[in-house]
Structure formats: structure tokens, C-alpha cells
Amino acid sequence: MKNKLLLIILLSLFTSGLFAKQRLLIFSKTVGWHHTSIPAGITAIIKLGQENNFDVDTTIDARKFTYANLKQYAAVIFLNTTGDVLDIAQQAEFEKYIKAGGGFVGVHSATDTEYDWPWYGNLVGAYFKSHPAQQTAVFHVVDRDFIATKHLPAEWKRFDELYNFKWISPDIHVLITIDEKTYTGGTNGDNHPMSWYHDYDGGRSFYTALGHTDESYVDPLYLKHLLGGIEYAMGNAGK
């Protein structure tokens, strides 16, 4: 009888969602430039989910942006999105999701997205301006206590497409900066952030400018960096 009662309680907890896996939605719609590394990124994030006990759905369909659909996800990741990817109604639904405590992860060209939607600009934390030729540079990890950076060396040397920004929010908590003296084509000066996080409008937002290349998505340091950002956005940073 006791075992039967315990089974009923456990089934109730599972159906109530207490023990349910968290879910992540990858959104990779592009209206401008289309990154050929998107499939590699999707594959890598699905694998991260399998290894870290969260489920991953993927879409390029903006019609999925209803609050009724989004509320099942602990976080939404804009994986190399570009251009105007959501209409006004979909924008309102996504705002509702974030305001209800949802999480956001922006990867690389997520800052090359929705230039005419100021709320989104503040959520992602910056807007893309330009980039020089892909090259190797030195990154300074300025916060090594955060879940997405605590595994990284203080100076991280890597190859990627290196973004300049035309606007950067003053409200972000910077995790990584890039040393413009170590490469050519930087335009943001000594204060050139490349990854950050912040609580925003009821939700959580993490962004990394890294992730242009296919090679990023098999790089253990980068993948752990991205995983940390996902865990923060899903509300797991303190767990």
C-alpha cells in the first residue's frame, strides 16, 4: 500500500512538471546574411542538451512565437539570426515571455537582428556594426566567477569573426573583452565587450559574439562557454 501511494505521488510530481526536463528552443531564422555554421550549432546544442539533461527544439518559423508556445521553454536561443525575424504581434508575444521570467541566449549575429525594435536591442545588449576579416585575437576574461566563463583562461586566444558594435547597452555585465591590439580592424577601443549577461525586464539574457565558424561548435572551451550561458538563461546559474 505504501509503495502504491509513493508511486502515485511520484507520478503526480512528474505530471505536474516538477521533475520534468527543462526545454530550450533554438530559433535560427535569417532574413539577412545566413551563416553556414547554423547546422553545426544546432547539432552541438542538441548534444549539450543530451549531456546536460535538457530537451531542445528547433525552428525557423516565427509563428512559433506565441506566449502559449514559448512558456514551455526555460530559454530561447537566437542562433545566428539576422534581420527582421519577428512581426509586431510576435514581438509582443516574445516580450510577454521574457517579462514572465523567460530566458534569452544570443549567439553571434543575434546582434545583427531586429534593428528597429529597441526592446530587443536592450535585451540582446548591442547592435552589430561591422567586422574585419576572420582572424585570431586575444580575449580577456574579466569575470571568471560566472558559470559561462569560470572554466576559461584569463587570456583566451582564438580564431573567429570579430564583431564591432555601433551601440552597446550601458546595463550589461561584461564577461569577456577583446584586445584590439592583438588583431586588425577593431573599432570599439579599449572597452570592447564580446560576451555579457544581464537581468532584463523580468527575464535573463546572455550573449556571446563568438560562434561564427563551424569549428566553434566542436571547441570544448567555446561549448562550455555557451552551455554556461544557456544554464544562466534557463535559471540554473546558482544550481
Rank of each mutant, 00 (worst) to 15 (best):
F128T: 10
G102H: 04
L175Q: 15
L79E: 03
D61T: 01
D55P: 00
L18S: 14
T182L: 07
A237R: 14
A154C: 09
S205G: 13
A233Y: 00
A74E: 01
T43S: 15
A137Q: 09
K224A: 13
L152W: 04
A92F: 02
P193R: 11
I168S: 08
S109Q: 11
F19N: 13
Q22P: 01
S169P: 01
T36D: 07
I8R: 14
A154L: 15
T136M: 09
L7H: 12
A126L: 12
K29H: 03
Q91W: 06
K96C: 02
R158N: 10
N80I: 07
Y97V: 04
V218Q: 15
Q50T: 09
N53T: 07
V107N: 01
N188E: 15
G41W: 00
R158L: 13
F146R: 03
R204Y: 07
F139E: 00
A154P: 06
L6F: 09
E114Y: 10
K4T: 10
T43C: 03
T81G: 01
D57N: 03
K239S: 11
N188G: 12
L86D: 02
V138N: 03
G211T: 08
G235Y: 08
V56R: 00
I26M: 04
S130H: 06
F78P: 00
Y207E: 01
G238K: 14
K129S: 10
H34W: 04
V105E: 02
L10F: 14
W119S: 05
K64F: 01
L175N: 14
